[in-house]
Design a protein around this nucleic acid. Sequence first.
DNA 1: TGCCCGATTAACT
DNA 2: GTTAATCGGGCAA
Length: 197
Amino acid sequence: MRAASAPGAARLSIDFSRNSAQVARRLIGVTLLIDGVGGIIVETEAYDREDPASHSFSGPTARNAVMFGPPGHAYVYLSYGIHWCLNFVCEPKGSASAVLIRAIEPMAGLAVMRRRRGVADERLLCSGPGRLCEALRITALQNGLALDRPPFELFARQGEVEIVTGPRIGITKAADKPWRYGLKGSRFLSKPFKPEA
DNA sequence: TGCCCGATTAACT
DNA sequence: GTTAATCGGGCAA
């Protein structure tokens, strides 16, 4: 991955040559910008080909083709006929694994996001996969684009972050798998994590 | 070709 | 807590 462009910004330290669960964990705290609009990733979910809940479970199709391609690219799909969802494709290549970006903490372009979303509450701008795609204007146009060049920008997190895990949301298959990752205590999660036992 | 369902959200009761 | 909105993918016929 090439470093992000802004002067003085932390160099991107994550890569996608790992399985989706590891990438999902490492993405928490990373800053994602699209055309300069975005914020800190606070919630992700992992999917791979062995996973009955994954789009890639039944093999390659026109829709999920990007998942079977090289890592470090964006897989965007339409959910429930209404909402776009953004994923990052991971290694190992051919595993058709990806990480769903479920929520970000808005940091840049707040006014633009509010206009696109039609809501003023900061916590409702990007707290959910469909919401953040509307705020960042992600559509099928971004499907298949590389994440290491415009309009995408990724910045490594500043320090260590506390990460919580839990079952994924909105699925019926393999719903017990704890492949949801979140930034502990974040106010911008799409749903709270169950407190640790 | 038709039918069912979904990695969601917002507006209800 | 429940449900409508809304449409493309995937599978059966």
